[in-house]
Structure formats: C-alpha cells, structure tokens
Write a protein that binds this DNA or RNA. Sequence first.
RNA 1: GCCAGUUUAGCUCAGUGGUAGAGCAACGGUUUUGUAAACCGUCGGUCGCCGGUUCAAAUCCGGCAACUGGCUCCA
Length: 689
Amino acid sequence: MPDENQQPNQPPAPPNPERKTLDDRAKMTELERIRHSCAHVMATAILRLWPDAQFAAGPPVENGFYYDVDLKHRISPEDFPKIEEEMKKEIKANNVFEKLVVTREQAMKDSESGRLGGLTERPGNPSKFKLGNLEAIPEGEPISYFKNGDFVDLCAGPHVMRTGNIGAFKLTSVAAAYYKGDEKGPQLQRIYGTAFKNKTALDEYFKMLEEAKRRDHRKIGAEMGLFAIDTEFVGPGMPLWLPKGTVLVEELEKLAKETEFAAGYVRVRTPHLAKEKMYRTSGHLPYYEESMFPPMLVSEDTSDKAEWERVKAMAGPAQKHAYELAKQLFNSGGFKDAKQIQEWKQAAATKKDADQAVQEFFSSTKYYLKAMNCPHHHRIFAAEPRSYRDLPLRLAEYGTCYRFEQGGELFGLMRVRSMNMNDAHIYCQPEKFAEEFNAVNEMYLKYFKIFGIEKYVMRFSTSAPEGLGKKYVNEPALWKQTEDMVRQVLIDSKINYVEVPNEAAFYGPKIDVQVWSVIGREFTLATNQVDFAVPAKFGLTYRDRDNTDKTPLCIHRAPLGTHERFIGFLIEHYAGNFPLWLAPDQVRVITIGAEDDPASAPLMKYAKDIASELRAAQVRVSTDFGNNPIKAKIQDAEQLRVHTMLVIGGRDMDAGAVSVRLHGKGPQGAKPKGEVVADILAGIKERRA
RNA sequence: GCCAGUUUAGCUCAGUGGUAGAGCAACGGUUUUGUAAACCGUCGGUCGCCGGUUCAAAUCCGGCAACUGGCUCCA
C-alpha cells in the first residue's frame, strides 16, 4: 500500500479477513482492551446464569464488543438487566486477568472437558467452538488462556489488568450469527454490548447515537419530502421519488451528464427487460439468478389448440395439475388466496416443475427484469460494425435495474430492489486499458471533491484460485493479467487502496469505493470493474489495424453508484442541509407584510419581481407572503431547510436591497438586489459547496 | 433467508382487559409583522392485517406482512 498518499483523515483500513496475527493483537488500543475484557466478563455472567453455554468468538468491534454463544435459552433484551447485574458483580470483584501459556495438548484436553469458555469442567459438554478455534491457530504460535475468577477462555489477549478496569458498559442488542461467518455452519446468538473507560464516555456514546438517528436519511427523507416507500402498493425496497427528491436525482444526472460528455462518453438508452437468452449468454444467470426477479413468461402463441398439444405432451398428472392452476393464475390475474398457492405448490413436485408448467403454458419465452445494464450495452456494441478507430467507445446510461434483494437486506435508500445506476461501459483495446482506467479513477476523485468526501478507501477485489470455474470464470491467465494491470494503475496513480482477495465479480477484478458518512455509517458507493470475459461471450469484436478481429476489454464503472444509495449517503453527509445547487428549496422570498394587506401592495410587487427574476433563471424559488409573524415564517423556512431566505421589508424595498439569511447560518445582512441575484446564480453554476 | 425487537392520527408519542388521547402539521377565522413558534376554533384513527381467548381486546394468545438492529449478501 503506498503510504505517501495516505490522507491525514483516512480511516484505518478495513479489518483483514484473514486471521489476526499476534502482532496485530498487541496493537489493541486501551479502549479495545476494555471492550475485549468486557466480552469475557459478559461470558462469565452468562455462564453463571446458564452454565451450559458454549462460546465461540468475542472480539472488540468498532463501537463495542460481542460474544457469540450457543445456548438453548433464547436470550432477549429482557435478559440484559440480570446479565448486567452479574457482570457488575464480576467487575466489583476486581479479578485479575491472568495469562496462562499452555501446550496444544493441554488446550485440547481442556476443550474436550468443557473447561474452556466455562466456569468449571463440564463433562459431556465439550467446548466445541473453542476446539475449532484451536485448530485455526498455526503450529508454533504460542497458545494462551486468560482467566478471570473461575472463567477460563482460550484467548491471545491482550486484556486490561483487572475486571475493575472496565469503567462503564451496557448490553445493546442480540442477533443471530453464523459460526466463523459460514452460512452453512451452526447458528449462534450474538450478544452485543459496549464499554468505555467511564460513565461519561458511555453517556456521550449514547448521545452520539441519538444524534445519528436525527441525521438518518430515512428520517430526513420523510421530513423533507424526498422519497416514500409504499410497501403496500408498490413494494418493499422500491422507493418513489417525491418532487423534492426528484430534484436531487436530476441535479445528479445533470452533473454526471456534463462530466461524462466532457470525458468523451456517448449516451444510450435501453429497455428494462431482456430475454432469457441475454443472461444465459452473458453468464449472469448461473451466478446471479438468486438476485434477479423471477422471469415473466410471455406467450407469442396462445391458441387453444397449441395449448392442448403442450398439455398432452406433459409428463405426469402433477405437471398437468400445476398447468391447470397456472392457467387459472394467468387468466385471473393472480391466485385468490394462500390456500390456492399452497395447492399449486403441492401439485408440482418441485418449484421447478411448477415453473416449467407455467412456461409451457406460454410457449416458453422468458423475460427478465434487468439486474445490470452491461448486456444491453454489449448488444449496442454489437449493433454496428466496430473499428479500432471507434475505440474507446464509452456508452453511458442512467439505467434502471431491479435486483431481488433478500427481505432482511433492504434498508431505506441504501439497499433497494429498484435502482438507477450511473452506469457506463468503456470498450477499449487492451493496450489502452491503463489510460482509460486511470481516467475513470480521476473522475471519482473529481466527484469526491465536489461533494467534499474526504474519507474514502478503494477496495481492490481480486479472485482466488480455488474459485475459478465456480465463483469466477475459468480464465487463470486473464485473471492474472487484468489484476496486474489494475494493481499497476493503482500504484502508478498513488491512490490509496486495499487489496481484498476472493471478492471479485465473476467476470473480472473490481474496485469498490468505500466512504463513511458523517454519522460513521459505511457505504460502498462507487464501483469500477474490469470485464475480460463477457464481451467474448457475446462475440463482440472490433477490426484492428492489422485487419484482424479482436475482442475489446470492457470497463464497467459507476462513480456515483446508484441514485438511491448516493442520495441516501448525501442526505446523511449533509444532514439534509444541501449546498445551494442541490437544495430542493433553493430560495424563499419572505415579506415583512402580508399579501392581504392593501398597504403592502408596493412591497408585494417588489418581492414578486425578485421571485420572477430568479425563477426565470431556473432557480427553485418559493414565496411566503402570508400573514404570519416574520419569526414564524423564518421558522417554517428553516425547518424546510430552504438554503437561502430573502427577507424583504419596506426598508429593503426603499434601498433596492434584500436581506439575506442562510439556512443554519442566520442573517447575513442587507445587500443590493442585483448583487444577491448574481451571487445566487454563480453559486448554483459553480456547484459551490 | 436467519435471530431479536417494533408497528396507535400526516409526524413525535401517551394509553397493561371496560366509551381511543396530547403536541405539532393541515383547514377556517382573528391579528398586520425586521430574522427559529401571535391568538381562537375545526377536522383527522377498522390501534399493521387475519384468526383465537373473553360478557368485553389497542391491551392476552397464534399466524402473516412491513419496518428496525444484527448475520449472510451487496451498488
């Protein structure tokens, strides 16, 4: 990793997915030691209440600690007070955290007797997870226990000196977690807590959480009328952009279009659907089917006769029954109740058979909602003969994609099922790759500057040899070649990055840009992927200088990610206080004097003229000429987060001036009207922060 | 999808088996103003949905849905 480009406020690199070395562990900060120790104290307390509990891993994490436990009793927040009670006793006892170095044989023995992660030996209840942890310790590395009171744990430390050094703590939540993160492994209960040096720091942390809640994009989005998620009629994970949110969407599109135009991109537009053949050819279906909406089945021939032939050709009664029910479904526009669906499911031996029956019914054309834009763009590349002179061809589109994210993944605007990607595909000659890839990275940095994003890290995801042919296309030479190219560009451009093995896309290595919102939430915003596989699958070629046909390399890139996630991020980044160019409510003209008061007629004219002038210049301006007191009008505008308030009274009118007030910054004094208007227009044009 | 929790008016929230409440917002009026709340009044709810227990359910029980915090996944 190039250190010289390390930015001063760069966050620490994400935790290495591989095992922590003893050296890494020794670097634990004091706070981390407190939290790690607190996890042991929590385990001690849980064992006093439920002696048969088996523990897996209990590390400190960003905002606290957790311990994974296997226990018949389902721990709920109602149990927290009594666990905390036991923890307090252990802290009050002020036991020493004693380190014992043991042999592997001893540790094996203590795992089998249930002593590890226990208060006593527990015959017939071996410490199975500790045994697994023990196996992961490489030969030659010392094996140690930490002991506080009766609790003995397999642990490399480090810890605080005594349990009494844990100043203040609180249990926060419980969740399910898989042993060693393996979905197929046993499921454990993960108990989360947090700990601090003292009560003041703990209270501050909870106050910070409250503050974070106020900045949550879901809360601000509702307050400002940016978006709505109508789960009843539209569906979960499919946001509706309200007029004010649409302003943000369109301002971003404008920015992207200008930037891409200047960088030599051309724009294209594609439908939201494609035939099954598209995703079979691209190779997405086997890798990606789970994340796509189930296909729509479309018939080009529904004549009764053709249908009958198909029914007769079907294998068994199960398929025939499924077929009848499927027909009912399509004719009536949906099953009437859950019983009917159940019946249908039972009728078909497996879901596949039922799908098959439906498909047969409609002469077998499947259409998929697109989960990505690349195949469509590949077909645009294929639509015309290409010469090396046409390259690099940069096809850009704000393409709408649909992904069937699992229910539990959905999260406000951050994880959605319908999304608009700031997408483009760059087709280039392999020898032009570095130049193009670099230009894309520079575009990222340009955007970050506009939005004042200072904390970011580029995650360079590469393949793993064991995944070739499974998770990744089986092209070892191309993997190595493209990964080397990307790495070289990153090193040459001195961009700060971390390399993450085994996380590439199936068709090539990728770079994800990770950012942190002010409230500390982490986001993967942008992505930049190399694709050496899919263009070949579509038979894409260009005629090179030497009169031979060659396959282009493709770079997928989305510097602004999706509208949904990017705007979600921006809402929290700015806490809803957008810069003038983005603000849904840019200017509000507020009069001291009401429209329904005849004496204010000249003031009204003066104010209306200013509003009209701004509106004619495409500024989003509203007016408040109502009869509320000025304080109330100001408050309304402040709560709406109107960026610039122009307060106009008789005094201003007489001087040909307006009084400017900026949201969150208070009154800025009266200035000549022309100057104020010019400044507003310039601020918008320059996209001033 | 998995574990736990939550769901009462547009929003924030009271209401632990006996006639659904408050503040803000909205709407109607009064008041005519110098930088974050003038005053009076009116409207607004199948207590997420379905079922059960009970003389009686927002409240107790079961199922489902959505959301929240995590896990796995991911732009």
